[in-house]
């Protein structure tokens, strides 16, 4: 691969790192994408470049090339660094909200295989998460109290300890519906959802194909693997 080719591959990579860049909107992107699809050597070079940066091609669609970051990549999104200065509790809340939006839009495998673009409101996601948490509270019995140590509180307890909306007009930073809307605003910037125009009084969002691909190819699997690791650790600890 020549220096020029390498530069071109890097340019393509730069396009893929802009989550809201679509090939149809940038001629350069479209040209590079066409080369990626037809020139095997260029494609291999691009993959090598991406691999070195711990990036993976998730999907090649007419909209563009979807690239995801491996957990160790410098490009990987980190909850711990998101909105710096967040407490553990806030990180858990924000993480649950990301997972909750994903699970609301794509609850089962079937939904991950389909092509629909679900429309929803922050309130829908909150109802969904809250319902799941309430169910767990019922199963645990009302006897379970919130532990004093925030580290030991169950995820569902943390979620239920926040109000859905703050009473009165003023929205609170910790009211979950507001946090979900805040997250959705960021997800708009990340090209995962779009805000529906003319939705009326209540803001409506629509999940975009990129969101599904990210959940299907990375998010859900990485989460599942981590859960399995925790389970194995617990099994090891109790054995």
């Amino acid at each position: 691969m020549s220096e020029d080719d390498l530069r071109e591959a890097a340019r393509l990579l730069a396009y893929t790192l802009q989550p809201r860049a679509y090939a149809a909107q940038h001629r350069g992107y479209a040209e590079l994408l066409a080369r990626y699809r037809t020139d095997a050597q260029f494609r291999a070079g691009f993959h090598a470049l991406a691999e070195g940066l711990e990036l993976v091609v998730l999907e090649d669609s007419p909209r563009g090339l979807l690239v995801g970051a491996r957990p160790d990549s410098v490009f990987a999104f980190r909850l711990a660094e998101y909105r710096k200065g967040a407490t553990l509790e806030q990180r858990v809340l924000r993480g649950l909200i990301i997972l909750g939006i994903a699970a609301y839009c794509y609850p089962t495998r079937r939904h991950l295989e389909e092509t629909g673009m679900p429309v929803f409101q922050a309130k829908d996601v909150d109802d969904f998460l809250r319902g799941a948490c309430e169910q767990l509270r019922k199963e645990a019995g009302d006897a379970i109290a919130m532990p004093d140590e925030p580290d030991l509180a169950m995820a569902w307890q943390i979620y239920l300890s926040q109000p859905a909306v703050k009473a009165g007009e003023r929205r609170s930073r910790s009211a979950t519906v507001h946090l979900i809307e805040q997250m959705l605003d960021d997800m708009v910037l990340w090209g995962l959802v779009r805000e529906e125009a003319d939705a009326g009084k209540v803001r409506q969002f629509r999940a975009l194909p990129r969101f599904r691909a990210q959940v299907r190819e990375m998010g859900a699997q990485h989460g599942l693997r981590e859960l399995a690791r925790i389970r194995a650790e617990q099994a090891g600890a109790s054995a």
Partner: peptide
Amino acid sequence: VVAVLERVAGGVVPP
């Protein structure tokens, strides 16, 4: 759970 959520968020949010 924070480790799990970290992984999910890292996968869901684009680079």
